[in-house]
């Protein structure tokens, strides 16, 4: 091709590199979409193995409890501290409760818990599936007529959908409690004002919106991490790269998806 185009070869090479990358990107997106649809389809098909889902809820949900509680407590505390500073500039410290609760319920709860779970459980998911792929355990499952996607991927997605919204709700409640600790016990706001204003300002739409977000993030995290693990490269290096790109891609998708969801939902 280069010889025929002569002097224009550098430009043509650049353009075809762009084309190749676009095609790669589009086909990767297509593969990911088919992977997700197939995994969800496998969830509906028998044989059903609820014990696999329970095991994954234990890993994703129970395992992330301590880190989620720690993160949310400090998030709520720092929100109260910073919010109090800003609100006291125009004398509306009484609105600290709604400020903390609304930021947590609408925004920080779903996003931060999804990020924490992507870091803790998502990376482990990608690495675990990746190692099963490179040590040919997935091929062994196939030879025993076990559908590897149904066995490995579907339970993780189902467990994520169940566990992550629950963790988000817990994140919100613990964060509100953290804000209460700082606002009421440290900064001397009245407890009635904090909780009462919060109840007056928070609406059901805020809560359902937050839960919708966390459901979408649950699918994103489990889907991306399982896909990256399942399609990892060769050897230990491939697993390492798959784990890294799983966490990076799910983080980026959570943050971008959060903007899109916020503009649609609220």
């Amino acid at each position: 091709m280069d010889s025929r185009l002569g002097s224009g070869s550098a430009v043509a090479g650049g353009i075809s590199a762009l084309g190749r990358q676009t095609l790669d990107l589009v086909s990767e997106m297509g593969r990911m979409a088919i992977f997700l649809l197939f995994a969800v389809w496998c969830l509906i098909l028998p044989p059903w193995r609820p014990s696999l889902i329970v095991k994954q809820i234990n890993f994703i949900g129970v395992g992330s409890l301590s880190i989620v509680i720690l993160t949310s407590l400090f998030t709520g505390m720092v929100l109260a501290l910073q919010g109090f500073y800003t609100l006291s500039k125009f004398g509306s410290e009484g609105l600290l409760g709604p400020a903390v609760a609304l930021s947590l319920i609408r925004e920080l709860g779903p996003v931060l818990s999804a990020l924490v779970i992507a870091g803790r459980a998502g990376s482990a998911m990608a690495a675990e599936i990746g190692i099963m792929v490179i040590t040919e355990q997935v091929d062994a499952l196939k030879t025993m007529a076990v559908n590897p996607v149904q066995r490995l991927v579907s339970p993780r997605i189902a467990a994520g959908i169940i566990a992550i919204p629950l963790l988000t709700a817990l994140f919100d409640v613990v964060g509100i409690f953290g804000g209460y600790l700082i606002g009421v016990k440290l900064l001397g706001l009245s407890g009635g004002t904090y909780l009462g204003e919060m109840q007056a300002q928070v609406e059901m739409l805020d809560i359902t919106g937050g839960i919708w977000k966390s459901l979408v993030f649950a699918i994103l995290v489990t889907w991306v991490c399982c896909y990256k693990g399942y399609h990892c490269g060769h050897g230990a290096e491939g697993v390492g790269r798959a784990t890294t790109s799983a966490v990076v891609l799910s983080t980026v998708l959570i943050l971008v998806g959060d903007y899109v969801l916020t503009s649609i939902l609220f």
Partner: peptide
Amino acid sequence: VGIFVLIGILALGYLSIQLG
């Protein structure tokens, strides 16, 4: 897992009944 789900549902219930 049972305990975890219970805690999660309690948190969700607090949010929607008390605040929502």
